[in-house]
Structure formats: structure tokens, C-alpha cells
């Protein structure tokens, strides 16, 4: 197939990578989800334009692509912040008061779960057990884990990101 669908002429780095991902998986059975994972790694989220390219590239109806993207919570239609805050709401963290941590984060950032601050700096998510129950309650900011937290610690934690 030669459906190299560049209409605008500017094939930027991300678009090129996306094509590569699609090429690598073309013809493979059950390729859609692996392709979506890799595409999200490139773009940070899955805007409609990316879903469309994938739909055409893999020859899967767009409605199906969209259906899969919206089914799984790992896939995001919205861009995330530069710093992704994930609050563990697993059971071990919950019985140790993670809901109070989450409330504090919402209050300090002025956003709700699933949203991003206006400057695009922080986004806030709730997740399930991240496997660090020994340190419960825990939050993750990008790849860094903060454990044994109390609501009072949140300010100090956010302080670290002030000038970043």
C-alpha cells in the first residue's frame, strides 16, 4: 500500500515515527493496542488526527480505534501536564488516607482529577496500586515516587517543582 497520507507537506519527526510504528506492526494480528501504546509514547496522548492515521494505516475502522481508545484508561484523548501526578487510590493506600492526600492536591493545584493546570505544568490522576504499598499512601510525579505522605507534606513536595 502506498497511502502515504501527507497532505500538508510537513512530515514532522513525530509523524515519521508514527508511520514507522504502523509499518512495524502492519499485518500483525491484534496490532491495534500495541500501536496505540507506542503512538501515545510519541505524542503523549492520542488526538483524533493520530487515531485517524492509525485507522488508515492498519486498515481498522476509525470507530473501532476510537472505541478502543476510550475503553482503556491508559489511553488519553487529552494532553497531560509536563508533570503527571498520580495519586494511588489502591486499597492499601486508601485505608491509610489517600483520599485526604488527593483532596489536598486538588486544593493546592486548583484542578480536579483528570485535568491539567492552565499552564500545562501539572496534570492530576488517580491510579490503582503502584506496588509500593509498603510506603502507603504514595503519589507518583512522573517517575518519582513519594511515600509515607501526610496531607501536610504535599506543599513541600510541590515546592520541589516550583522552578522546573
Amino acid at each position: 500500500m502506498s497511502s502515504n497520507n501527507c497532505c500538508c507537506g510537513i512530515v514532522d519527526e513525530k509523524a515519521r515515527k508514527l508511520q514507522e510504528i504502523i509499518e512495524n506492526h502492519k499485518g500483525q494480528k491484534g496490532a491495534l493496542i500495541p500501536v496505540l501504546h507506542e503512538a501515545q509514547d510519541v505524542y503523549g496522548y492520542l488526538p483524533m488526527s493520530v487515531q485517524k492515521t492509525i485507522s488508515e494505516g492498519l486498515d481498522v475502522p476509525l470507530s473501532e480505534v476510537y472505541g478502543v481508545v476510550t475503553f482503556y484508561t491508559q489511553f488519553s484523548l487529552k494532553p497531560k501536564g509536563r508533570f503527571k501526578i498520580n495519586t494511588c487510590m489502591g486499597t492499601a493506600c486508601y485505608v491509610k488516607g489517600s483520599n485526604l492526600i488527593l483532596e489536598k492536591l486538588q486544593e493546592k493545584l486548583g484542578i480536579h482529577v483528570g485535568d491539567c493546570t492552565e499552564d500545562g505544568k501539572f496534570s492530576l490522576e488517580a491510579c490503582r496500586c503502584i506496588g509500593a504499598c509498603g510506603l502507603a499512601p504514595v503519589i507518583m510525579i512522573n517517575d518519582d515516587v513519594y511515600g509515607r505522605l501526610t496531607p501536610d507534606d504535599i506543599e513541600k513536595v510541590l515546592e520541589k517543582y516550583k522552578d522546573l
Partner: peptide, 23 residues
């Protein structure tokens, strides 16, 4: 095959559907 954050995919028939690339 990487899951994508859906608890129900731990159920065996759902897991299989997911490996096949669907919801």
C-alpha cells in the same frame, strides 16, 4: 501484550478479546 488499564481485562474472556486487539 500490554494491558491498558481496564480491571475487567483480568477476566479471562475479556483478556482474550483484548489480546486480539479489541475493547
Amino acid at each position: 501484550r500490554l494491558g491498558a488499564g481496564a480491571f475487567v481485562c483480568g477476566e479471562e474472556t475479556a483478556l482474550i478479546t483484548s489480546i486480539e486487539g479489541h475493547r
